[in-house]
């Protein structure tokens, strides 16, 4: 697990968890990649550190915790408005596939 003042990330994750409220345009360096937060995002919420396609896996703690219900951009807030839970993914593989096709 790496932490850097503003966020927590585990190896292989494509999201980080904010450990402080982060105003829009806050700049992060994550694994030598520069990330700019797109909107004001509160403490404890997730930010994508890579572009994630619709249907793509959300990786946190090094495991899949859900999938993107729409395209998620690097720096974007990752929450229930753009993620479905992994149990749903297991129950409904078809939904995930259809998201990939669209």
């Amino acid at each position: 697990m790496s932490t850097w003042k503003w966020f927590v990330k585990f190896p292989g994750d494509n999201v980080v968890t904010l450990t402080k409220d982060a105003p829009a345009n806050t700049l992060f360096i994550v694994d030598s990649d520069e990330i700019s937060i797109l909107r004001d995002t509160p403490f404890g919420h997730k930010i994508a550190i890579k572009n994630i396609e619709g249907g793509g896996d959300i990786i946190k703690y090094g495991v899949k915790i859900g999938f993107a219900t729409t395209e998620i951009l690097k720096g974007e807030h990752v929450h229930i408005h753009n993620v479905d839970e992994i149990s749903l993914m297991i129950r409904d593989e078809e939904k995930k596939r259809s998201l990939r096709r669209s």
Partner: peptide, 9 residues
Amino acid sequence: KILYGEETI
């Protein structure tokens, strides 16, 4: 403090 890297797990 784990969140800020000030203490380890």
